[in-house]
Design a protein around this nucleic acid. Sequence first.
RNA 1: GGCCCGUUGGUCAAACGGCUAAGACACGGCCCUUUCACGGCUGAGAUAAGGGUUCGAUUCCCUUACGGGUCACCA
Length: 473
Amino acid sequence: MVRTRFAPSPTGNMHIGNLRTALFEYLIAKNSNGTFVLRIEDTDQNRYVESAMDIIFDTLRITGLNYDEGPGVGGNYGPYIQSERKDHYMPYAKELIEKGKAYYCFCSKDMPEGQQKYNRHCANLNQNEIDSKLATSEPFVIRQLIPEGKTTFCDEVFGSITIDHEEIEDQILIKSDGMPTYNFANVIDDHTMAITHVVRGSEYLTSTPKYNLLYESFGWDVPVYVHLPLMLNEQGEKLSKRRGDASFQELLDQGHLPEAVINYIAFLGWSSPDNREYFTLAELVEAFAIKNISKSPSLFDSKKLAWMNGEHIKRLPEDVFYDMALPVLQSAVHTPGINLKDVSKMVQSRILFVKDIPELVDFIDKLPNYDVDLFINKKMKTDAAIALQSLESIIPIFNDISIENWNNRTLYEVAIECGKSLSLKNSQMLWPIRTALSGKPSSPCGASELCALLGKEETLKRMDIGINKLKAL
RNA sequence: GGCCCGUUGGUCAAACGGCUAAGACACGGCCCUUUCACGGCUGAGAUAAGGGUUCGAUUCCCUUACGGGUCACCA
């Protein structure tokens, strides 16, 4: 049974690097019908940010990375907030002291001048010295005694890695405030919560031997390690909260759909063998495999994310998209009688973001003061004379169409027929109409649809304006 | 600086040691089309450098360069 955990610390925003870690942990668990656990690692009370906890909960909820065990859900191994189980860790630390794998250290927090590394001074204290210091309540920490030698471990992504213990300091397990350090709490919790796959960023690669030494000291099995490649910002720098690199919330504010963000970041450091790129979360669960995770760091590309967002918008059911777009449509279109549902359908396949809608539909409320040159289009083989001919011929025909018959299909048919009688190509007939109605080089739909959308009166009015512009030429 | 990891087009990336090194985004062109977009086709663009092993190296080994990570009573 695979069990993974997402173990964020509540210190601020969740940037997309954190999110990707959560995603991969979720995918690894769910791909084999395993369990995904949320554990809040808040052992550093100085860095604690109150709102951060909610950000974590909200992000997981919005993205659909639902955890099976964790705060509010329960399970057999809880609680899942480390500060609430503070007393849980000390007995393990004492066990290590008894085994000679750790020791009390009474050195002050500040290193003596000129000393870069801890010199293991307190490892050599005799029992009487230790007892008397403890008896007088001298502040202490508990340090792990790193033995001589080397540790080799196997990572699922990076392969076999060997680190000499000379590179590792006697790290602190229990801080002077009684709290465990991350390094210690992490190992204890991962073991007691029966985590099988430890998934985390590759910045932990070099400290992994410390964890293994702890597992070995307790006689516990080491978990499977899956270290993820780094994610860098668009400048190739490490993602950081301080620099304001894309946080999930920011991407949402910019108009990205949660599912598009998830889809995009799944492809940062992972790829699907079948070349497919559009994935729902459920499809990712199905397709994900650890062996397809890559080692090299990847840059965040907002252009591709934008494209991905468009892909997800296109595939949204019409009514879902309509509900989403409605507030924007309402604020962008005020003309009475306009069917916003129609407008919604027109724009759905043409935008990357919902916020792109207003500039697409601004011509509805008010015809732009466009340049008459817009009528002249080489590709459409249309010049001013043809444009004038098209508009002047169609006006009386449109005029005869009753309001009941004023629909796209009818309008299109009569326009084409009119064009034929004038020996005009479809594009020559329709381009001037489209231009006169939108006053823009591009519009979310073609000529007849525009006419149907704007209504008879407005259509005739705008064509008149076009004619006047052309005559003034 | 020590140690660890990485390096395939601008970006994401694929390729048991074996065709002419996939595909996607972005960019250019063409087609389709009732404009633009969508869609289809297509173009340009890459194995960091040097050595070795091999019949054959993007792939394995070494060196160099560059990039990153890590060396906390932070996680």
